[in-house]
Nucleic acid binder design. Sequence first.
DNA 1: GCCAACGTTGGC
DNA 2: GCCAACGTTGGC
Length: 159
Amino acid sequence: MPATSKYWLLKTEPESFSIQDLARAPKKTTCWDGVRNYQARNFMRDEMQVGDRVLFYHSSTESPAIVGTATIVREGYPDPTAWDKSDHHYDPASSPENPRWCMVDIRLERIFDEALPLSQLRGVAALKEMELLRKGSRLSVQPVRKVEFEAVLKLAGVK
DNA sequence: GCCAACGTTGGC
DNA sequence: GCCAACGTTGGC
């Protein structure tokens, strides 16, 4: 994927943080902390830019689905939960002096009137090569092609 | 540097 | 809860 990608997909388990939680957050904004995968980190650290568009995805739930959109409002900066011993994502190899993990801030754009479940997305020709739909895909931060992003918005009935 | 063992993700 | 598909770790 080229460094010019402007579209992303972020996964979250709604039991820990859902799009409804994001809607209730101050300024409908949150930091995307807790990512502990190098490929996902690199996307956040090196490629995400303010204004990039985001598909918001609920995983590990009864009906995994894309549930809305968000935008990047702050570019990559160190994830302080990595050096918080009480945090579930604590990593002793990271420190304020030498941070290993990274996060961005996102702001809610819209919650879809109807979520788009994986089962529905799998039937869409324009999404045939989408990373999310690849067998065995686990990346929690992944690039999305423009045509894919637009196809998803169309499915969601967003003008 | 190989690779087996282990831990995690996440759909089903 | 099962398990396939990954990523990471660590012995050698």
